[in-house]
Nucleic acid binder design. Structure first.
Lengths: 244, 244
DNA sequence: CGACCCCTTGATTAGCCTCAACAACCGTGG
DNA sequence: CCACGGTTGTTGAGGCTAATCAAGGGGTCG
């Protein structure tokens, strides 16, 4: 995904003009690499840049005053991370590398420039963060109002739906580089209970698992159990202003 | 709050130019009133407009396949609602009036125009929706990783913090026009358990309650128990592009 | 080889849900 | 003005889901 993985992500949703591609390309000039497990920033760290994910998995999370951890979101290639820090000038959550990752740092100033010079791209990025908010809302509903097994099913479905946007629609098997504790911190469960739920899904032949390799056997049933609605396949770009 | 309650909300965060105020004023020309309990739109309804809340309380929520309801957010005067529908062309949640409300409908096209002509305002609105995403994330952590009593405490703190932005910082007593079932649907609890928790808070003299009138007796302790961090007092606008 | 992390499984506990009944309140119509 | 039904709040008893506690196994890395 060289030469603009943000561009290729955005192009999934709306055709881009040559000029827009060039503008986006300029955002991704630098590149930074982090090792698996690296902590990129902590909550409340001052932050003056965003990152575009080029490769690898990231996770953002908070530690609560009671010592517990809540994972907000996993970030995949093509995602923009650290956006919410814009609103506060400091990180609202911790950001860590789940695997080795390549990131393109992107100054907040450059985003401001994009708002001035490329309103259509700004609106598109705005739309993208809206769809992330919706999926956060879906997770809220999942955690707030569904049982443990459904939460796991739903999380698996989300991974699949999101990875497909960048990697192709026929994907049924993928590597999830997470511990069961990570699953728990994302779904509001303990690692022990996550383990039992996953084994249940395997036993009922909804999924197969070999180490961190997961294959979906019955996608329909998995989505039904997780009460999952796919928010990633399409987003609406018809409202966007015209390209410049 | 006549003549632009969006303008007065935004002015809380950043000074606005005359030109910007006029632009915003044009967004709020019309006004629509809904009765308490009215359903403004359902999930999946096609939606071509946003609303700026002028007065009253709104609630957005989803019904899950298992019959349960999850409340995503309560909306107060100065809020912009229905924004996430932008990303999908249809409503991602149901929107209902908790009290009688006045709304200013706002065509999506007009927002597109704002992106083209007032990049600074667009960026400011963008920032505002980011801060909403952060508070959604806070609620996720609250529901995912804290006990029932903490969730209620945190929700009360959030109401107070948000109402203060528009109504003044010294406010300690306010009317919450919600049923205990609403509290439950927002926090992932049953109405019965909400009742017990609220009574616990009253008994421990953290709050006082007479009908729907609530007074905070020990704000510090309430925030501590709810693991609440105030995201509403300030947002960072230093990254915004210059005014036109 | 040992240390550590992660997964797995069992036994017990506890927090919250469910069910049920009743009281208080509210708006409505007689 | 009161009677009424419906909604909301309150309280108790019992049950179930998921947490906690605990112990062992497998894999990996130094």
């Amino acid at each position: 995904m060289g030469g603009g993985c943000l561009a290729s992500r955005l192009a999934h949703y709306a055709p881009l003009s040559e000029r827009e591609r060039r503008s986006l390309g300029r955002l991704e000039e630098r590149e930074r690499r982090f090792r698996k497990g690296a902590l990129i920033h902590r909550e409340n760290d001052p932050v003056r840049e965003l990152y575009i994910v080029r490769s690898g998995w990231l996770v953002s999370f908070v530690y609560l005053g009671n010592g517990a951890r809540q994972i907000m979101r996993f970030h995949f290639p093509g995602d923009i991370v650290g956006v919410s820090s814009l609103a506060f000038g400091e990180a609202t959550d911790c950001l860590a590398a789940v695997t080795d990752v390549d990131l393109c740092p992107l100054d907040q100033d450059k985003l401001a420039l994009l708002f001035e010079e490329e309103p259509r791209l700004a609106a598109l990025i705005f739309t993208l963060t809206l769809s992330e908010r919706v999926s956060l809302a879906d997770r809220l509903a999942s955690i707030g109002r569904t049982a443990a097994r459904a939460r796991i099913a739903s999380l698996l479905c989300e991974f699949m739906a999101r990875l497909r946007v960048m990697e192709g629609a026929d994907k049924l098997e993928f590597t999830i580089p997470l511990t069961q504790e990570d699953f728990g911190d994302a779904t509001g469960l303990t690692a022990v209970h996550v383990n039992r739920m996953i084994r249940g899904l395997v036993e009922d032949r909804l999924i197969e698992r070999h180490g961190s390799r997961v294959r979906i056997l019955d996608e329909r049933r998995l989505a039904a159990e997780g009460l999952f609605t796919d928010r990633y396949a399409n987003i609406d770009t018809s409202w966007l202003p015209a390209a410049r």
